[in-house]
């Protein structure tokens, strides 16, 4: 017993010593880090007026950074400036400065063993638009141990930097990519590549397809309206719903007959999106159908129908009439709610 007790005591004491050593190491590091941060701050103050003049007027000579604190100070400042000062000239000067001074430093950071550092470098490259590192980024993408987080960011940058093979890259992305990832990549893509993506729509996986439809609406890509219209005929309701949603986003007017089909759909989401489009367009000729939908069995459809009515030229009067005379209590309630919302806005 006492032997094992002594052994156990030794284990505890050893662990305590280890913890204490780590503690001392961390404290020393914290002190160093504190000094380093102060140094960065000092440089930032020094560089600020100079960098500002350079970005705003382009007539300032910038001293090249030499220590890592100087690099960090300059990059952080620059990143801050382009966030608050949005303007083509400034963007151009930023890129020029970054291409001259930061490329080597950023390249080194891309190979850092810690993911956090590598990601930060990628964010900087994107913000500064340093295209000359594109080859480096390609190599990084091809590496075996690249994480999904990096892959997402890299693809976004390939799209933004108009990489000639962005389309091919997209064809081979892994399953783990989500619609949200696709949307972000698509949002940076040039029109030519985007159109190519749409042309081969049915070759993509579902997530990419949905992202494509959504982005047409979000980015108001009117060139693809006819594509959306073909989707409206598709037998799969999710396509129709998303296409209607995108059309509503763009407030594109559809013919009455076409809209009526969707307003009478069996799928409530489809009715909802068709109503949303009616609300955006103020289509007067469909009033009877919309009024009928005030009695829909789905709450959100009723609510959207009421909103569509409200948006019409004499919307308030129509809602008033429904509130008073409708034979459906749900329709009356909904009309009352939207009447009040309509009056608030006046």
């Amino acid at each position: 017993m006492s032997d094992s007790l002594v052994l156990f005591a030794w284990i505890v004491v050893t662990l305590l010593t280890i913890l204490l050593t780590i503690f001392l190491y961390l404290i020393v590091r914290k002190r160093k880090d504190y000094k380093w941060k102060k140094e960065v701050e000092t440089y930032k103050q020094l560089y600020e007026p100079m960098l500002f003049r350079y970005l705003a007027y382009g007539d300032e000579q910038i001293i090249p950074p030499s220590s890592s604190a100087q690099y960090v100070a300059m990059m952080e400042l620059l990143d801050h400036f382009i966030r608050v000062l949005v303007n083509g000239d400034i963007k151009e000067r930023t890129t020029k400065l970054a291409e001259t001074y930061f490329v080597d430093y950023l390249r080194m950071q891309l190979h850092h063993r810690r993911l956090g550092r590598r990601m930060n470098a990628l964010f900087y490259i994107e913000d500064f638009g340093t295209r000359s590192l594109l080859h480096e980024l390609e190599k990084m993408y091809e590496q075996k141990d690249v994480t999904t987080m990096e892959k997402r960011q890299l693809l976004k940058m390939f799209a933004l930097f108009r990489h000639p093979h962005v389309y091919e890259y997209m064809k081979h992305v892994d399953e783990s990519f989500t619609q949200f990832d696709y949307r972000l990549i698509l949002s940076r893509m040039d029109d030519h590549t985007f159109t190519k993506m749409v042309d081969y729509f049915f070759d993509w996986n579902e997530k990419m397809q949905y992202a494509l439809i959504d982005m047409i609406g979000i980015m108001q890509k009117f060139a693809h309206i006819s594509f959306l219209r073909t989707l409206l005929q598709h037998e799969q309701s999710e396509y129709r719903i998303r296409a209607l949603k995108a059309l509503a986003e763009m407030a594109f007017p559809l013919e009455d007959d076409q809209l009526r089909i969707h307003l009478h759909s069996q799928v409530w989401q489809e009715r909802l999106m068709a109503l949303r489009l009616c609300a955006r367009m103020r289509q007067h000729t469909l009033l009877d159908t919309i009024k009928q939908l005030m009695k829909d069995r789905v709450f959100s459809v009723r609510s959207q129908a009421a909103e569509a009515l409200l948006r019409m030229p004499n919307g308030l009067a129509m809602l008033e009439q429904i509130a008073q005379t409708s034979d459906d209590p749900y329709a009356r309630d909904m009309a009352l709610e939207w009447l009040e919302r309509g009056r608030e806005d006046d």
Binding site: M1, L5, F8, L15, I22, F23, L26
Partner: peptide
């Protein structure tokens, strides 16, 4: 007394050491 020491040691491991480790984890 041996039991007392043993139990005390193990509860130091169980309580204090993990808390110390958590503080270090935070700082790290």
């Amino acid at each position: 007394i041996e039991f007392a020491i043993l139990l005390f040691l193990v509860s130091v491991l169980y309580g204090s050491m993990f808390s110390m480790a958590a503080v270090l984890l935070e700082e790290w």
